[in-house]
């Protein structure tokens, strides 16, 4: 098992090198001159040249790249020019917020989509199957910022069930002591139910927004995969042996049907990382998505590079987890690795 893990980790290295190169080049070819932006609108050409020199932008591209890699090796991602903080500390303080929101959304989606997909497959052609199709179609066709705004309008403005969409906690609550960086978990660890309630109230609406978006692919794949497994020969054997519907559907069919669902989960997670940027904007969520967008607009390349790199590492780590999950679900994968 340890050997598998090390082997898999080694295979991620080329991908990471590629990401480093591409994120560097991408930020260099983007339009906009960082130096003139930071020197201010009234700056003289000399002042701009001065800033350029300070930032190291007067060097040749390979030279800049070597400096960037050297900094990376020391754990430096550079300095954000808009916040004035180091990119590492900015990301460290904002990443848990994004991760909590994304995982919460994904969790909601799974809890709804998998039972829905299973029910649709078991009762193929019934009302629940049609409901599953409608929900799935609606989920993908609505853009996240639109669902987000609609939900804010309905639950905050009209019904007043949800608190103001202004970040992770309302103004009266204070953040729990940091253990994982996830407020929901940290508040439970601290035993602070008041903060937990406040954090949950804040995350619910943006979480539902993301869940609606990611529900569709998970439900569709669960349904399709369940249908094919339900018509397979070993399910027929299970039925012919008189096993109850619960055992047949959950123990025999669903566990076998989960493999493609897990694969899809990896993709859905990457979609969510993208959708997150917009949702964070709508809900004033202090995550990395909104941070990166602001940096990009400001031609502040260091945070953008740092963001792309962080997301890539996150994605690679997620794929690693999915590969390991395969092994847990399917003994055939375990033995061939």
């Amino acid at each position: 098992m340890v050997k598998t893990l090390v082997d898999r980790l080694l295979t991620t290295i080329p991908a990471l090198i590629g990401v480093v190169v591409i994120s560097f080049l991408l930020t260099r070819v983007l339009p906009g001159d960082t130096a003139s932006y930071f020197a201010g609108p009234a700056a003289t050409p000399q002042a701009i040249a001065e800033v350029r020199k300070q930032l190291g932008l007067d060097k040749s591209l390979p030279e800049q790249f070597l400096r960037y890699v050297g900094d990376l090796a020391h754990g430096h991602l550079g300095q954000s020019l808009t916040t004035g903080q180091s990119v590492v500390s900015d990301l460290a303080s904002r990443l848990p917020a994004s991760a909590e929101l994304t995982l919460f959304g994904l969790f909601l989606a799974l809890v709804i989509a998998i039972p829905l997909g299973v029910a649709a497959a078991v009762r193929q052609g019934s009302w629940i199957d049609h409901a599953c199709r409608i929900i799935a179609t609606a989920g993908v066709s609505l853009p996240v910022f639109f669902t987000g705004l609609i939900l804010v309008y309905v639950f905050y403005f009209v019904l007043q069930w949800a608190p103001a969409p202004l970040g992770r906690l309302d103004v009266f609550a204070s953040a729990p002591p940091t253990v994982t960086g996830f407020y929901l978990i940290d508040s439970l660890i601290a035993g602070d139910l008041e903060t937990f309630r406040a954090a949950l109230a804040q995350i619910l609406v943006p979480g539902i927004t993301l869940a609606i978006f990611s529900l569709a692919p998970i439900a569709r794949i669960t349904r399709a995969s369940m249908l094919s497994v339900l018509s397979s020969e070993f399910v027929r054997t299970a039925r012919a042996s008189g096993l109850g519907p619960r055992t047949v559907i959950v123990t025999y069919a669903l566990r076998n049907a989960l493999l493609p669902v897990v694969t899809t989960l990896g993709m859905v997670f990457s979609f969510l990382l993208g959708a997150n940027v917009l949702v964070e904007k709508v809900f004033a969520w202090p995550g990395v998505g909104s941070y990166a967008v602001e940096a990009l607009i400001a031609s502040d390349f260091a945070p953008v590079q740092g963001f792309v790199l962080a997301m890539a590492i996150l994605y690679v780590a997620l794929n690693l987890i999915i590969d390991l999950a395969y092994g847990l679900i399917d003994p055939r994968v375990r033995s061939s690795s």
Binding site: S232, E233, A238, R332
Partner: peptide, 8 residues
């Protein structure tokens, strides 16, 4: 082989 649950 197909008549048996492959992952149990």
């Amino acid at each position: 082989r197909a008549a048996l649950n492959p992952i149990r």
